[in-house]
C-alpha cells in the first residue's frame, strides 16, 4: 500500500465478532503530510465496520483540528488500508478469531 506517512493499528485485540473496532492512528513520517498536525500524538477512536467509512472519520478528525484538510485523503486512505486488512483477516478466520 502506498505509504501515507500515517500508521493505523488495532487499539485492542480484535475478537472478530464485534463490528465496532478500536483503532489508533499516529503520524509516522511527518514529511509526508502537507498540513500542520501534532507530532507524537496517537488518536484512538472507534470504527464500526458496518456503519462508518474512512472518509467520514478522516473528515471528523479534520473538523476536530487533528489534521489539515489537505491531509484528509491520506488519513482516510491509511484507515481504509487497515480496515481492509482486518476484514480480510476476519474472512480467513470466521470462527471467533
Amino acid at each position: 500500500a502506498e505509504d501515507t506517512g500515517l500508521r493505523v493499528e488495532l487499539a485492542e485485540d480484535d475478537d472478530c465478532s464485534n463490528s465496532s473496532l478500536g483503532l489508533r492512528l499516529w503520524v509516522e513520517d511527518p514529511k509526508k503530510l502537507k498540513g500542520k498536525h501534532k507530532d507524537n500524538e496517537a488518536i484512538e477512536f472507534s470504527f464500526n465496520l458496518e456503519t462508518d467509512t474512512p472518509e467520514e472519520v478522516a473528515y471528523e478528525m479534520v473538523k476536530s483540528g487533528f489534521f489539515h484538510e489537505s491531509d484528509s485523503k491520506a488519513v482516510a486512505k491509511s484507515i481504509r488500508d487497515r480496515v481492509t486488512l482486518i476484514k480480510k483477516t476476519r474472512e480467513k478466520k470466521p470462527a471467533g478469531c
Binding site: 500508521r7 499516529w26 496517537a42 484512538e44 477512536f45 471528523e60 476536530s64
Partner: peptide, 27 residues
C-alpha cells in the same frame, strides 16, 4: 493519564495520548 485528552466530534470520541518514542522509531 493526565496527558490523555478526549475530543468529541459529531458523536465520535477521539482519545489523544502520546505515542511512545519507541513506537515512532520502530515503525
Amino acid at each position: 493519564n493526565s496527558l490523555t485528552q478526549v475530543v468529541h466530534s459529531a458523536g465520535r470520541r477521539f482519545i489523544v495520548s502520546p505515542v511512545p518514542e519507541s513506537r515512532l522509531r520502530e515503525s
